[in-house]
Simulated assay, not measured.
Amino acid sequence: MIAKIGQVMVYVRDQDAAARFWTEQMGFTVMHDEENDGMRWIEIAPRKDAETSIVLHDKNLLEQMDTGLSLETPSLLFYATDFEQLRNRLAEKGVTVGDIVEMPTGRTFNFADPEDNYFAVRETD
């Protein structure tokens, strides 16, 4: 079951410049600035206790990875508690779903709506 919208993923060419914009001009707070296996992500939010955050991803790196995601617009990351069951249920209903992938932040899979807009789901407790 999808529990909540956890993150809005924004794909940028210059993560540092984007982070400066969001923090210095928009007043957001950096929640995490992490790098793992050559992949860096900067998580920002309007305040420390916000339930939904923005994650700034390196568009250049993701283009090289050929994830199938549209990198031209932000995408949503949903958090799900019954992760594998949700993926199987969506596939049974004819939804286009991707493979489960182990990412530095946890297991994820993508799914597409009828217009081929892709969304991501990450396993959560």
Rank of each mutant, 00 (worst) to 15 (best):
I42S: 00
R47G: 11
A19V: 11
V55S: 03
Q15S: 06
L77W: 04
L56E: 05
R122A: 09
L69Q: 01
R89M: 09
T73S: 06
N88V: 11
K93L: 15
K4F: 11
N60K: 08
V95R: 12
I44A: 05
G6K: 10
K93G: 13
A120C: 12
A45Q: 02
M65L: 14
E43G: 03
Y79G: 03
G27N: 09
A80W: 03
R20S: 05
D14F: 02
I42Y: 01
K48G: 07
G68V: 09
E92T: 14
V121E: 02
M26A: 15
T81N: 09
E102S: 10
L62P: 00
F109R: 04
R20T: 12
V8W: 04
G6Y: 04
L61F: 03
G27D: 06
W22C: 04
F78A: 10
V95W: 10
A19I: 02
P74S: 00
N110E: 08
L56K: 03
T96R: 11
Q25G: 06
R87T: 08
V101S: 07
V95L: 11
E84M: 06
Q15C: 06
A17S: 10
I5R: 03
G6D: 14
D49T: 15
K48M: 10
M1H: 14
F28D: 06
T52A: 14
L71I: 07
Q25M: 15
E43P: 10
S70F: 00
K48S: 07
T81F: 05
E72D: 09
F78M: 07
V30K: 07
M26I: 15
R47E: 11
M65A: 03
A91F: 12
G6E: 12
G68R: 04
S53E: 08
I54S: 06
A45P: 03
T105Y: 11
T52V: 15
I54L: 14
E35Y: 02
M39F: 08
K4I: 10
P114A: 11
Y79H: 10
E35M: 15
